Amino acid sequence: MSRESDVEAQQSHGSSACSQPHGSVTQSQGSSSQSQGISSSSTSTMPNSSQSSHSSSGTLSSLETVSTQELYSIPEDQEPEDQEPEEPTPAPWARLWALQDGFANLECVNDNYWFGRDKSCEYCFDEPLLKRTDKYRTYSKKHFRIFREVGPKNSYIAYIEDHSGNGTFVNTELVGKGKRRPLNNNSEIALSLSRNKVFVFFDLTVDDQSVYPKALRDEYIMSKTLGSGACGEVKLAFERKTCKKVAIKIISKRKFAIGSAREADPALNVETEIEILKKLNHPCIIKIKNFFDAEDYYIVLELMEGGELFDKVVGNKRLKEATCKLYFYQMLLAVQYLHENGIIHRDLKPENVLLSSQEEDCLIKITDFGHSKILGETSLMRTLCGTPTYLAPEVLVSVGTAGYNRAVDCWSLGVILFICLSGYPPFSEHRTQVSLKDQITSGKYNFIPEVWAEVSEKALDLVKKLLVVDPKARFTTEEALRHPWLQDEDMKRKFQDLLSEENESTALPQVL
């Protein structure tokens, strides 16, 4: 008996699950189920560990084997000379395990699969056993689809999209007709009724959600790893209520002995410091949205989908001078704002400069500016000194954290500008005749005249004003913003236009 009217009423009120309206889709043409990776026989039982391990490696599972009696060998002398080797079968990115008779397991190899009674669906509900069930008529011709799209860092995100009359449910929550939600590992998919569980979705590319604290899981769906560094790992996640993407940084307390840091400095109150950081608001710094204190720290951040500045300059790639100017102007505005709010970044580098898009002209935002507030000064500097390429001379020669101030950030900005303009770092371990530390503390950077011949004198002058060993003589952010190279009204107008595109209400910060 159909429950279409009941569920449609529920759909009209929406769902609290991570779902959002989605535009129309072009329906895929039908194809045989076997060619799409559906096993030839149905099963109602969950797999054992041996079955799972075989399939996850990209080899055929026991459900897909063919009797050897149906095959015969071709003698080598009868092999056609022009026969080309077969292409290897792509490894599946996800697996659906059937929970009921009449449904088959599915190895997801393609990027898009339609499910329903219509014969054009890649996964067609046409098993005779299924057709005899009382629920068969409640399934729509095109009930739902599972697909994946390219996300940040060229990774993939799996989604389920509801197109049914009676509802598609993920972990008992209604997706909603015309809406989608991301699928995470071990999600249970039910059709027409929330208790009519048909599939379990296994994402073969992500970790299980159960490793994360419950308070975090209640608000966010964790997904793929976006990156990792000395101070922690960053994962893509989704807000459950809105389906908006965020980035979540995970900082290990054990790695940084944060408990010991608190004992050594009783004034170090991470929760208080995070609340201060959350109040920071500038178009060129990453917004801190939320914070969870569990076995590790979880910092929920605004997501930038254009990648890191590092990706644009790695491998001796240089940027156009006009692009360097647009990016560097924004970096200076961001660091100036942090300094005005009493925050020294201490870890400025291309990896911590994020881009809003893949376009050459785009907004940038500074991230990882609050680590000293979370990890403690000593722990952070011990970590950073392991990779000193961007560290100021006074940091390398000081004991502990004494003896330096916000000028350290201006040195790091000078190193970043040098790399963007030239395509190579000013200080490098590859210069074996002088140690990296000695290069930095003496201010002897690697200047290649033929490379810098293409760079304007004004740009080079600003680099020199920032890479000054004496912090008292080094340019401040205010002085850098007043430098002739940055007195470019076309560049500032472009920045204002980019801000307006992102948010019509965002105004250009005042600069002296």
Rank of each mutant, 00 (worst) to 15 (best):
67 S>A: 08
187 S>K: 07
240 R>Q: 04
131 K>L: 12
8 E>M: 07
153 K>I: 14
201 F>C: 04
14 G>R: 14
154 N>H: 05
168 T>H: 10
10 Q>Y: 03
236 L>G: 04
154 N>K: 15
69 Q>F: 00
19 S>A: 10
86 E>F: 06
130 L>Q: 03
237 A>N: 00
233 E>R: 10
39 S>G: 14
65 T>E: 11
173 E>P: 01
27 Q>L: 10
101 D>S: 12
105 N>K: 10
112 N>I: 11
18 C>Y: 07
43 T>Q: 13
162 D>C: 12
111 D>L: 14
9 A>T: 07
145 R>M: 12
217 R>K: 09
47 P>T: 07
176 G>Y: 12
170 V>K: 13
257 A>D: 03
148 R>V: 13
39 S>L: 09
177 K>L: 10
93 W>G: 02
133 T>Y: 10
270 V>A: 07
214 K>P: 02
88 P>K: 06
98 A>R: 11
251 I>T: 00
204 L>K: 00
174 L>A: 12
246 V>H: 00
27 Q>H: 09
89 T>F: 11
202 F>L: 07
39 S>E: 07
236 L>H: 07
247 A>R: 00
90 P>Y: 06
4 E>L: 07
29 Q>Y: 07
93 W>P: 02
22 H>M: 12
7 V>W: 04
72 Y>C: 14
210 S>L: 14
16 S>W: 13
13 H>Y: 12
159 Y>P: 00
7 V>D: 10
127 E>S: 10
225 T>F: 14
263 E>M: 10
257 A>I: 03
88 P>M: 12
197 K>N: 02
91 A>V: 10
53 S>L: 10
146 I>W: 01
259 G>E: 14
186 N>Q: 03
144 F>R: 00
220 Y>A: 08
250 I>C: 04
210 S>T: 04
272 T>D: 03
40 S>L: 06
76 E>P: 05
22 H>S: 08
176 G>D: 03
265 D>L: 01
222 M>V: 13
138 T>A: 06
92 P>A: 15
153 K>S: 02
220 Y>I: 03
221 I>S: 01
48 N>E: 12
82 D>C: 10
122 E>C: 10
37 G>Q: 11
268 L>S: 09
259 G>V: 11
139 Y>H: 02
115 F>E: 01
44 S>I: 06
45 T>S: 09
264 A>V: 04
26 T>F: 13
254 R>Y: 12
158 A>P: 04
233 E>T: 13
22 H>G: 10
258 I>M: 05
27 Q>E: 11
272 T>I: 04
12 S>G: 10
264 A>F: 02
256 F>E: 05
66 V>G: 09
195 R>S: 06
155 S>C: 11
267 A>D: 05
96 L>A: 05
29 Q>I: 11
113 Y>C: 06
93 W>K: 01
30 G>C: 10
108 C>M: 03
60 L>S: 03
144 F>K: 03
35 S>N: 14
197 K>I: 00
84 E>K: 07
216 L>G: 11
11 Q>I: 07
50 S>P: 14
119 K>Y: 13
115 F>A: 07
96 L>M: 08
106 L>R: 15
150 V>S: 14
13 H>V: 15
159 Y>G: 14
136 Y>V: 07
271 E>C: 13
146 I>S: 05
202 F>D: 03
63 L>F: 13
15 S>F: 11
183 L>W: 02
105 N>C: 02
112 N>R: 11
58 G>S: 07
23 G>V: 08
144 F>D: 02
47 P>Y: 11
69 Q>S: 05
46 M>K: 04
157 I>L: 13
208 D>P: 12
249 K>D: 05
233 E>Q: 14
97 W>A: 07
228 S>K: 14
136 Y>E: 01
53 S>A: 06
130 L>M: 06
156 Y>N: 10
173 E>C: 15
125 F>E: 03
238 F>L: 08
35 S>L: 05
60 L>M: 11
29 Q>D: 10
3 R>A: 15
31 S>A: 12
38 I>E: 14
72 Y>G: 14
20 Q>N: 03
128 P>Q: 07
132 R>D: 08
264 A>N: 02
230 A>G: 09
107 E>G: 14
241 K>V: 01
213 P>T: 04
159 Y>K: 08
264 A>G: 02
75 P>G: 15
106 L>I: 07
51 Q>R: 10
30 G>A: 11
172 T>R: 08
25 V>A: 10
80 P>F: 10
261 A>W: 04
234 V>C: 15
10 Q>K: 08
119 K>C: 10
125 F>H: 01
115 F>W: 02
11 Q>L: 12
244 K>V: 12
169 F>R: 01
32 S>T: 11
154 N>R: 04
237 A>E: 15
271 E>W: 11
151 G>S: 09
126 D>N: 15
131 K>G: 14
5 S>F: 01
182 P>G: 02
221 I>W: 07
32 S>E: 11
138 T>V: 04
193 L>G: 03
51 Q>W: 06
249 K>V: 03
168 T>M: 01
184 N>K: 08
7 V>P: 11
79 E>H: 13
117 R>F: 00
235 K>W: 15
13 H>S: 09
92 P>G: 15
207 D>S: 05
165 G>I: 12
4 E>G: 10
34 Q>R: 08
68 T>R: 03
259 G>P: 05
235 K>S: 10
48 N>P: 09
15 S>G: 10
240 R>E: 05
84 E>S: 09
238 F>Q: 09
216 L>K: 00
23 G>E: 12
72 Y>W: 15
132 R>T: 11
78 Q>Y: 13
181 R>G: 15
265 D>R: 12
168 T>Y: 00
29 Q>N: 11
262 R>F: 13
193 L>C: 08
249 K>T: 01
258 I>Y: 01
126 D>M: 12
183 L>S: 02
231 C>R: 03
93 W>R: 03
213 P>Q: 09
98 A>I: 05
250 I>N: 15
176 G>A: 09
195 R>P: 03
248 I>E: 01
36 Q>K: 06
129 L>V: 10
150 V>Q: 02
271 E>H: 04
50 S>Q: 04
260 S>R: 15
116 G>V: 00
254 R>S: 04
133 T>F: 13
194 S>R: 07
113 Y>D: 01
179 K>R: 01
159 Y>C: 15
86 E>Q: 13
122 E>L: 15
164 S>R: 03
85 P>R: 07
107 E>S: 09
43 T>L: 11
269 N>F: 15
20 Q>L: 11
6 D>R: 02
235 K>R: 10
41 S>L: 10
86 E>C: 12
170 V>E: 02
140 S>G: 02
33 S>N: 12
195 R>I: 11
252 S>Y: 12
115 F>N: 00
195 R>V: 00
94 A>S: 14
210 S>D: 04
220 Y>D: 04
119 K>M: 10
267 A>H: 15
263 E>R: 06
113 Y>W: 04
247 A>P: 00
79 E>A: 12
85 P>D: 05
98 A>D: 01
18 C>I: 09
196 N>I: 10
191 L>I: 02
16 S>Y: 15
54 H>R: 09
19 S>T: 11
53 S>F: 08
126 D>K: 13
75 P>L: 12
184 N>A: 06
126 D>R: 07
39 S>T: 06
107 E>Q: 15
170 V>L: 04
75 P>S: 14
258 I>C: 11
135 K>M: 14
243 C>Q: 07
34 Q>C: 09
179 K>N: 15
260 S>Y: 05
28 S>V: 11
119 K>A: 05
242 T>K: 04
268 L>G: 05
60 L>I: 04
162 D>L: 01
108 C>I: 02
226 L>I: 11
87 E>G: 11
184 N>L: 13
165 G>A: 01
232 G>R: 02
192 S>Y: 03
81 E>Q: 15
95 R>T: 02
26 T>N: 04
260 S>C: 15
258 I>S: 04
76 E>L: 13
127 E>K: 12
68 T>M: 03
54 H>F: 09
82 D>N: 12
186 N>T: 05
48 N>R: 09
253 K>V: 02
94 A>L: 02
269 N>S: 06
248 I>K: 00
67 S>F: 05
214 K>I: 08
168 T>R: 02
152 P>T: 10
101 D>C: 14
6 D>N: 08
139 Y>Q: 02
55 S>Y: 05
235 K>T: 08
145 R>V: 13
179 K>T: 08
136 Y>C: 04
153 K>H: 01
130 L>T: 14
130 L>A: 08
228 S>G: 11
108 C>T: 14
272 T>N: 00
34 Q>E: 12
17 A>R: 13
69 Q>I: 03
120 S>G: 09
151 G>W: 11
150 V>R: 07
92 P>R: 15
117 R>S: 01
159 Y>L: 15
112 N>G: 11
270 V>Q: 15
140 S>H: 02
189 I>R: 02
